[in-house]
Design a protein around this nucleic acid. Structure first.
Lengths: 148, 148
DNA sequence: ATGACACCTAGAGTAAACTCTAAGTATTAT
DNA sequence: ATAATACTTAGAGTTTACTCTAGGTGTCAT
Protein backbone atom coordinates (compact mmCIF):
# COMPACT_ATOMS: atom_id res chain seq x y z
CA UNK A 1 0.00 0.00 0.00
CA UNK A 2 1.08 3.54 -0.67
CA UNK A 3 -0.47 6.86 0.25
CA UNK A 4 -0.52 10.40 -1.11
CA UNK A 5 0.53 13.25 1.13
CA UNK A 6 -3.16 14.17 1.53
CA UNK A 7 -3.97 10.70 2.85
CA UNK A 8 -1.07 10.88 5.28
CA UNK A 9 -2.31 14.27 6.47
CA UNK A 10 -5.64 12.65 7.35
CA UNK A 11 -4.06 9.61 8.97
CA UNK A 12 -1.52 11.49 11.10
CA UNK A 13 -3.03 14.91 11.71
CA UNK A 14 0.25 16.49 10.56
CA UNK A 15 0.05 19.16 7.87
CA UNK A 16 1.46 18.59 4.38
CA UNK A 17 3.88 21.43 5.09
CA UNK A 18 5.10 19.64 8.18
CA UNK A 19 5.51 16.32 6.36
CA UNK A 20 7.65 17.96 3.68
CA UNK A 21 9.58 19.79 6.36
CA UNK A 22 10.31 16.53 8.18
CA UNK A 23 11.53 15.02 4.95
CA UNK A 24 13.79 18.00 4.29
CA UNK A 25 15.20 17.58 7.81
CA UNK A 26 16.05 13.95 7.11
CA UNK A 27 13.32 12.30 9.20
CA UNK A 28 11.82 10.33 6.33
CA UNK A 29 14.71 9.17 4.17
CA UNK A 30 12.72 6.50 2.36
CA UNK A 31 9.71 8.32 0.96
CA UNK A 32 9.40 7.48 -2.76
CA UNK A 33 8.32 9.88 -5.49
CA UNK A 34 6.70 9.06 -8.82
CA UNK A 35 7.89 10.29 -12.22
CA UNK A 36 6.30 13.72 -11.74
CA UNK A 37 7.73 14.17 -8.23
CA UNK A 38 4.58 13.31 -6.25
CA UNK A 39 5.28 11.59 -2.92
CA UNK A 40 4.03 8.03 -2.29
CA UNK A 41 4.28 7.11 1.41
CA UNK A 42 4.65 3.42 2.30
CA UNK A 43 3.36 1.62 5.39
CA UNK A 44 6.97 1.61 6.55
CA UNK A 45 6.99 5.42 6.27
CA UNK A 46 3.83 5.57 8.39
CA UNK A 47 5.48 3.41 11.05
CA UNK A 48 8.39 5.82 11.06
CA UNK A 49 5.96 8.70 11.55
CA UNK A 50 4.51 6.91 14.59
CA UNK A 51 7.99 6.49 16.02
CA UNK A 52 8.88 10.10 15.23
CA UNK A 53 5.76 11.23 17.10
CA UNK A 54 6.78 9.20 20.13
CA UNK A 55 10.31 10.57 20.12
CA UNK A 56 8.98 14.09 19.72
CA UNK A 57 6.54 13.54 22.59
CA UNK A 58 9.46 12.43 24.72
CA UNK A 59 11.08 15.80 24.06
CA UNK A 60 13.69 14.96 21.42
CA UNK A 61 14.59 17.69 18.98
CA UNK A 62 14.29 17.05 15.26
CA UNK A 63 18.05 16.82 14.79
CA UNK A 64 18.24 14.21 17.57
CA UNK A 65 15.49 12.21 15.88
CA UNK A 66 17.43 12.43 12.63
CA UNK A 67 20.49 11.13 14.44
CA UNK A 68 18.46 8.19 15.77
CA UNK A 69 17.19 7.38 12.27
CA UNK A 70 20.73 7.52 10.90
CA UNK A 71 21.86 5.13 13.64
CA UNK A 72 18.97 2.82 12.86
CA UNK A 73 19.97 2.73 9.22
CA UNK A 74 23.57 1.97 10.07
CA UNK A 75 22.43 -1.26 11.71
CA UNK A 76 23.61 -3.17 14.76
CA UNK A 77 26.93 -1.33 15.05
CA UNK A 78 25.04 1.59 16.63
CA UNK A 79 23.00 -0.39 19.17
CA UNK A 80 24.81 1.06 22.16
CA UNK A 81 24.34 4.64 21.00
CA UNK A 82 20.63 4.00 20.63
CA UNK A 83 20.51 2.37 24.06
CA UNK A 84 22.15 5.49 25.56
CA UNK A 85 19.62 7.69 23.85
CA UNK A 86 16.69 5.83 25.38
CA UNK A 87 18.39 5.60 28.77
CA UNK A 88 19.03 9.37 28.84
CA UNK A 89 15.55 10.10 27.65
CA UNK A 90 14.05 7.89 30.37
CA UNK A 91 16.07 9.75 33.01
CA UNK A 92 15.01 13.12 31.62
CA UNK A 93 11.35 12.03 31.60
CA UNK A 94 11.67 10.90 35.23
CA UNK A 95 13.02 14.32 36.21
CA UNK A 96 10.30 16.04 34.23
CA UNK A 97 7.59 14.05 35.96
CA UNK A 98 9.07 14.85 39.36
CA UNK A 99 9.19 18.53 38.41
CA UNK A 100 5.58 18.48 37.26
CA UNK A 101 4.50 16.85 40.51
CA UNK A 102 6.01 19.71 42.49
CA UNK A 103 4.42 22.34 40.25
CA UNK A 104 1.10 20.54 40.40
CA UNK A 105 1.03 20.79 44.20
CA UNK A 106 1.63 24.51 44.08
CA UNK A 107 -1.03 25.09 41.43
CA UNK A 108 -3.53 22.92 43.30
CA UNK A 109 -2.90 24.95 46.44
CA UNK A 110 -3.58 28.15 44.51
CA UNK A 111 -6.74 26.66 43.04
CA UNK A 112 -8.05 25.72 46.47
CA UNK A 113 -7.12 29.09 47.91
CA UNK A 114 -8.79 31.03 45.11
CA UNK A 115 -11.88 28.83 45.29
CA UNK A 116 -12.22 29.90 48.92
CA UNK A 117 -11.33 33.51 48.07
CA UNK A 118 -14.10 33.59 45.47
CA UNK A 119 -16.51 32.09 48.04
CA UNK A 120 -15.77 34.75 50.66
CA UNK A 121 -15.11 37.51 48.10
CA UNK A 122 -11.72 38.46 49.54
CA UNK A 123 -8.26 37.02 48.96
CA UNK A 124 -6.69 38.18 52.22
CA UNK A 125 -9.44 36.63 54.32
CA UNK A 126 -8.98 33.30 52.56
CA UNK A 127 -5.18 33.47 52.82
CA UNK A 128 -5.41 33.99 56.57
CA UNK A 129 -7.76 31.10 57.24
CA UNK A 130 -6.06 28.59 59.49
CA UNK A 131 -6.39 25.65 57.11
CA UNK A 132 -4.72 27.51 54.23
CA UNK A 133 -1.87 28.74 56.40
CA UNK A 134 -1.42 25.18 57.55
CA UNK A 135 -1.51 23.80 53.99
CA UNK A 136 0.94 26.38 52.75
CA UNK A 137 3.37 25.53 55.52
CA UNK A 138 3.10 21.87 54.61
CA UNK A 139 3.67 22.51 50.90
CA UNK A 140 6.41 25.10 50.71
CA UNK A 141 9.85 25.58 52.18
CA UNK A 142 9.57 29.32 52.15
CA UNK A 143 5.83 29.94 52.42
CA UNK A 144 6.08 33.73 52.29
CA UNK A 145 7.41 33.45 48.75
CA UNK A 146 4.06 32.17 47.64
CA UNK A 147 1.64 34.93 48.46
CA UNK A 148 1.51 36.53 45.03
CA UNK B 1 15.77 45.70 52.16
CA UNK B 2 16.54 46.41 48.53
CA UNK B 3 18.82 44.68 46.04
CA UNK B 4 20.79 45.62 42.93
CA UNK B 5 20.21 43.69 39.74
CA UNK B 6 23.51 41.87 40.34
CA UNK B 7 22.30 40.64 43.73
CA UNK B 8 19.03 39.46 42.22
CA UNK B 9 20.99 37.61 39.53
CA UNK B 10 22.80 35.70 42.29
CA UNK B 11 19.62 35.04 44.26
CA UNK B 12 17.47 33.87 41.37
CA UNK B 13 19.87 32.45 38.81
CA UNK B 14 18.20 34.59 36.16
CA UNK B 15 20.45 36.79 34.00
CA UNK B 16 20.35 40.58 34.25
CA UNK B 17 19.22 40.58 30.61
CA UNK B 18 16.30 38.35 31.51
CA UNK B 19 15.32 40.46 34.52
CA UNK B 20 15.21 43.60 32.39
CA UNK B 21 13.31 41.68 29.71
CA UNK B 22 10.69 40.53 32.26
CA UNK B 23 10.27 44.11 33.40
CA UNK B 24 9.83 45.31 29.83
CA UNK B 25 7.16 42.63 29.38
CA UNK B 26 5.28 43.91 32.43
CA UNK B 27 6.11 41.08 34.83
CA UNK B 28 7.67 43.34 37.47
CA UNK B 29 5.58 46.52 37.53
CA UNK B 30 6.88 47.68 40.92
CA UNK B 31 10.65 47.69 40.56
CA UNK B 32 11.94 51.08 41.72
CA UNK B 33 14.80 53.00 40.16
CA UNK B 34 17.06 55.55 41.79
CA UNK B 35 17.81 59.04 40.41
CA UNK B 36 20.34 57.68 37.92
CA UNK B 37 18.01 54.93 36.70
CA UNK B 38 19.60 52.01 38.60
CA UNK B 39 17.11 49.35 39.67
CA UNK B 40 16.49 48.60 43.37
CA UNK B 41 14.52 45.36 43.82
CA UNK B 42 12.41 44.99 46.97
CA UNK B 43 11.61 41.79 48.89
CA UNK B 44 8.16 42.07 47.35
CA UNK B 45 9.76 42.02 43.89
CA UNK B 46 11.69 38.87 44.85
CA UNK B 47 8.45 37.20 45.95
CA UNK B 48 6.96 38.07 42.59
CA UNK B 49 9.95 36.47 40.89
CA UNK B 50 9.32 33.27 42.86
CA UNK B 51 5.70 33.27 41.75
CA UNK B 52 6.68 34.04 38.15
CA UNK B 53 9.03 31.06 38.19
CA UNK B 54 6.23 28.80 39.42
CA UNK B 55 3.82 30.04 36.77
CA UNK B 56 6.46 29.61 34.08
CA UNK B 57 7.19 26.08 35.33
CA UNK B 58 3.50 25.32 35.04
CA UNK B 59 3.69 26.25 31.35
CA UNK B 60 2.22 29.75 31.30
CA UNK B 61 3.48 32.12 28.65
CA UNK B 62 4.88 35.47 29.62
CA UNK B 63 1.82 37.35 28.38
CA UNK B 64 -0.42 35.08 30.49
CA UNK B 65 1.72 35.77 33.53
CA UNK B 66 1.44 39.48 32.83
CA UNK B 67 -2.33 39.07 32.66
CA UNK B 68 -2.31 37.35 36.06
CA UNK B 69 -0.22 40.15 37.56
CA UNK B 70 -2.62 42.73 36.15
CA UNK B 71 -5.55 40.85 37.66
CA UNK B 72 -3.75 40.67 40.99
CA UNK B 73 -3.22 44.41 40.95
CA UNK B 74 -6.87 45.05 40.17
CA UNK B 75 -7.80 43.38 43.48
CA UNK B 76 -10.69 41.18 44.52
CA UNK B 77 -12.86 42.02 41.50
CA UNK B 78 -10.74 39.61 39.44
CA UNK B 79 -10.78 36.67 41.87
CA UNK B 80 -12.86 34.46 39.59
CA UNK B 81 -10.61 35.05 36.58
CA UNK B 82 -7.64 34.03 38.67
CA UNK B 83 -9.46 30.96 39.93
CA UNK B 84 -10.19 29.96 36.32
CA UNK B 85 -6.55 30.39 35.43
CA UNK B 86 -5.41 28.01 38.18
CA UNK B 87 -8.21 25.57 37.44
CA UNK B 88 -7.31 25.41 33.75
CA UNK B 89 -3.66 25.12 34.55
CA UNK B 90 -4.31 22.24 36.94
CA UNK B 91 -6.28 20.43 34.24
CA UNK B 92 -3.55 21.02 31.68
CA UNK B 93 -0.91 19.73 34.09
CA UNK B 94 -3.01 16.62 34.73
CA UNK B 95 -3.19 15.95 30.99
CA UNK B 96 0.51 16.59 30.63
CA UNK B 97 1.33 14.10 33.38
CA UNK B 98 -0.92 11.49 31.81
CA UNK B 99 0.77 12.11 28.47
CA UNK B 100 4.23 11.75 30.00
CA UNK B 101 3.23 8.49 31.66
CA UNK B 102 2.29 7.02 28.29
CA UNK B 103 5.49 8.25 26.67
CA UNK B 104 7.54 6.95 29.59
CA UNK B 105 6.19 3.43 29.09
CA UNK B 106 7.17 3.46 25.45
CA UNK B 107 10.64 4.80 26.13
CA UNK B 108 11.16 2.30 28.95
CA UNK B 109 10.17 -0.50 26.59
CA UNK B 110 12.72 0.73 24.06
CA UNK B 111 15.38 0.96 26.74
CA UNK B 112 14.79 -2.62 27.85
CA UNK B 113 14.71 -3.86 24.28
CA UNK B 114 17.94 -2.10 23.36
CA UNK B 115 19.62 -3.30 26.52
CA UNK B 116 18.89 -6.83 25.40
CA UNK B 117 19.85 -6.02 21.79
CA UNK B 118 23.22 -4.73 22.98
CA UNK B 119 23.64 -7.89 25.07
CA UNK B 120 23.02 -10.23 22.14
CA UNK B 121 24.50 -7.85 19.54
CA UNK B 122 21.46 -7.90 17.28
CA UNK B 123 18.23 -5.91 17.31
CA UNK B 124 16.08 -8.38 15.38
CA UNK B 125 16.97 -11.25 17.70
CA UNK B 126 16.02 -9.17 20.73
CA UNK B 127 12.81 -7.94 19.11
CA UNK B 128 11.71 -11.50 18.42
CA UNK B 129 12.32 -12.79 21.93
CA UNK B 130 9.07 -13.96 23.41
CA UNK B 131 9.17 -11.69 26.44
CA UNK B 132 9.61 -8.54 24.32
CA UNK B 133 6.85 -9.52 21.94
CA UNK B 134 4.66 -10.08 24.96
CA UNK B 135 5.62 -6.76 26.55
CA UNK B 136 5.02 -4.87 23.32
CA UNK B 137 1.58 -6.40 22.97
CA UNK B 138 0.77 -5.36 26.52
CA UNK B 139 1.99 -1.81 26.02
CA UNK B 140 0.74 -0.78 22.60
CA UNK B 141 -2.55 -0.83 20.76
CA UNK B 142 -0.90 -1.16 17.39
CA UNK B 143 2.35 -2.94 18.21
CA UNK B 144 3.66 -3.00 14.63
CA UNK B 145 3.84 0.78 14.66
CA UNK B 146 6.59 0.56 17.19
CA UNK B 147 9.36 -1.38 15.49
CA UNK B 148 11.43 1.58 14.35
C1' DA C 1 41.56 61.13 39.20
C1' DT C 2 41.97 57.03 37.06
C1' DG C 3 40.90 52.38 36.21
C1' DA C 4 37.76 48.61 37.04
C1' DC C 5 33.40 47.32 37.12
C1' DA C 6 28.30 47.50 37.41
C1' DC C 7 24.71 49.50 35.38
C1' DC C 8 21.67 51.79 31.65
C1' DT C 9 18.81 51.85 26.91
C1' DA C 10 17.39 50.60 22.35
C1' DG C 11 17.39 47.44 19.34
C1' DA C 12 19.33 43.46 16.70
C1' DG C 13 20.17 38.47 16.67
C1' DT C 14 19.18 33.53 17.85
C1' DA C 15 17.07 28.83 18.00
C1' DA C 16 13.39 25.60 17.20
C1' DA C 17 9.71 24.06 14.78
C1' DC C 18 6.93 25.12 12.16
C1' DT C 19 3.91 27.92 8.72
C1' DC C 20 3.08 30.28 4.79
C1' DT C 21 3.85 32.36 0.01
C1' DA C 22 4.70 32.48 -4.77
C1' DA C 23 4.81 30.52 -8.88
C1' DG C 24 4.18 26.75 -11.21
C1' DT C 25 2.83 21.58 -12.71
C1' DA C 26 -0.28 17.52 -12.59
C1' DT C 27 -4.61 15.10 -11.96
C1' DT C 28 -9.43 14.60 -11.84
C1' DA C 29 -14.38 15.66 -12.57
C1' DT C 30 -17.80 17.41 -15.54
C1' DA D 1 -11.70 21.59 -22.56
C1' DT D 2 -11.88 23.80 -18.53
C1' DA D 3 -12.12 24.44 -13.77
C1' DA D 4 -11.13 22.80 -9.33
C1' DT D 5 -8.11 20.51 -6.62
C1' DA D 6 -3.78 18.48 -5.19
C1' DC D 7 0.68 18.55 -5.68
C1' DT D 8 5.67 20.50 -6.43
C1' DT D 9 9.84 23.67 -5.11
C1' DA D 10 12.62 27.26 -2.90
C1' DG D 11 12.65 30.31 0.28
C1' DA D 12 10.64 33.91 3.39
C1' DG D 13 8.00 34.79 7.67
C1' DT D 14 6.30 33.69 12.46
C1' DT D 15 6.39 32.86 17.42
C1' DT D 16 8.45 32.58 21.97
C1' DA D 17 11.68 33.58 25.16
C1' DC D 18 15.42 34.89 25.51
C1' DT D 19 20.42 36.61 24.52
C1' DC D 20 23.57 39.68 22.99
C1' DT D 21 25.67 44.16 21.14
C1' DA D 22 26.75 48.87 20.94
C1' DG D 23 27.45 52.82 22.97
C1' DG D 24 27.15 55.03 26.84
C1' DT D 25 26.65 56.57 32.24
C1' DG D 26 27.54 55.93 37.24
C1' DT D 27 30.10 54.22 41.33
C1' DC D 28 33.93 53.04 44.00
C1' DA D 29 38.62 51.91 45.67
C1' DT D 30 43.20 53.50 45.66
Amino acid sequence: MSYSIGEVVKKTGLSAHTLRYYEKEGLLPFVKKNASGVRAYSDEDLRWLTMIECLKDSGLQIKEIRQYIEWFNEGDSTLSQRLSLFENRRKILEKEMARLTVVMNKIRFKELLYREAVRVGNLDVATNERRFKHLKKKLFESPDDFDK
